[in-house]
């Protein structure tokens, strides 16, 4: 077998497919031809690297929880369901009482999504919740979100507003997928919560708030400032311990980054 014949069958060889006799002949040739041996090794490494990139993906826990539940593979026990329902009612009642106590009349506060955003931010900033992806790489977070979020989501706002990303993840709220990005601006912890724009149909109160503010809304939830807005694709909540102006800058950067980049 000469170099031409050996290289012609490189794919079968590196895939360990085809006629065993062909493999033996190629192996014999490679043993005697260092150029071809190196050539095959490079191709093999390259194909392996491509395959690894194609395959790289961790299962999305929330997605599979929903899938297995809906498919009837996993069914919560009746008793557990009942206790979950009772727990949910009690939690909702407690949340209402807390909301009344924490927010005096006249103070601008948000609505359902704003409360959720504040809750998530608090859990993360106090160390009670770890993001699905912990990363300080904008590119890694961007890639993760593109791979795991079922709607268009922009990459985290980057250096233009001093936002240093710390992680990201995906959650579900009232059957609506939501992406979150966590990070810091000048050591102030900030959470960005992102929904698909059409998710607002499930949250009529938030929709009316945003509509009243011309697509923008400022409020205070728990002890955190928050700004929210509607972009071309998303509804975005930015919450944190920073001044509202800083949060506003993050929100502006979120909405404009990809347009600037042309992505």
């Amino acid at each position: 077998m000469n170099c031409h014949e050996a290289r012609q069958h490189w794919m079968l060889y590196i895939d360990s497919e085809g006629d065993p006799e062909l493999h033996f002949r190629i192996s014999d040739h490679l043993a005697m031809c260092p150029d071809c041996a190196e050539w095959f090794a490079k191709r093999h490494r390259f194909e392996q690297a491509v395959a690894e990139r194609l395959a790289a993906s961790e299962p999305t826990a929330q997605l599979w929880d929903r899938v297995l539940g809906k498919a009837g593979v996993v069914q919560p026990a009746a008793g557990r369901r009942r206790w979950l329902a009772i727990g949910g009612v009690l939690a909702a009642a407690a949340a209402i009482v807390l909301a009344v106590l924490l927010f005096p009349k006249g103070q601008p506060h948000g609505s359902e999504l704003a409360a959720i955003a504040a809750d998530w931010h608090e859990r993360w900033s106090q160390g009670a919740m770890r993001p699905d992806l912990v990363s300080q790489s904008d590119e890694q977070v961007d890639r993760y979100l593109k791979d795991h979020v079922p709607f268009r989501v922009h990459c985290p706002p980057r250096k233009d507003v001093n936002f240093a990303v710390a992680g990201a993840g995906v959650r579900t709220v009232k059957d609506q997928s939501a992406a979150y990005i966590v990070g810091n601006v000048d050591k102030a912890a900030i959470t960005i919560l992102v929904f698909a724009r059409d998710s607002l149909d499930a949250f009529p109160l938030d929709r009316s708030h945003l509509a009243e503010g011309g697509g923008r809304h400022r409020c205070r939830e728990k002890n955190y400032e928050m700004v929210s807005g509607i972009t071309a694709d998303n509804v975005v909540f930015v919450v944190g311990a920073a001044a509202p102006e800083v949060l506003e800058q993050v929100l502006n950067a979120y909405g404009s980054y990809h347009e600037t980049e042309g992505a």
């Binding site: 194609l54 790289a56 993906s57 299962p59 997605l63 599979w64 899938v67 079922p150 709607f151």
Partner: peptide, 24 residues
């Protein structure tokens, strides 16, 4: 198989918003 199936589905589908529906 959850990881490989999800990755395969994401790469195969033209409309990525259908990933969960398809797996479901």
């Amino acid at each position: 198989l959850r990881g490989p199936l999800e990755a395969y589905c994401r790469r195969m589908l033209r409309d990525r918003s259908q990933v969960e529906d398809v797996i479901q």
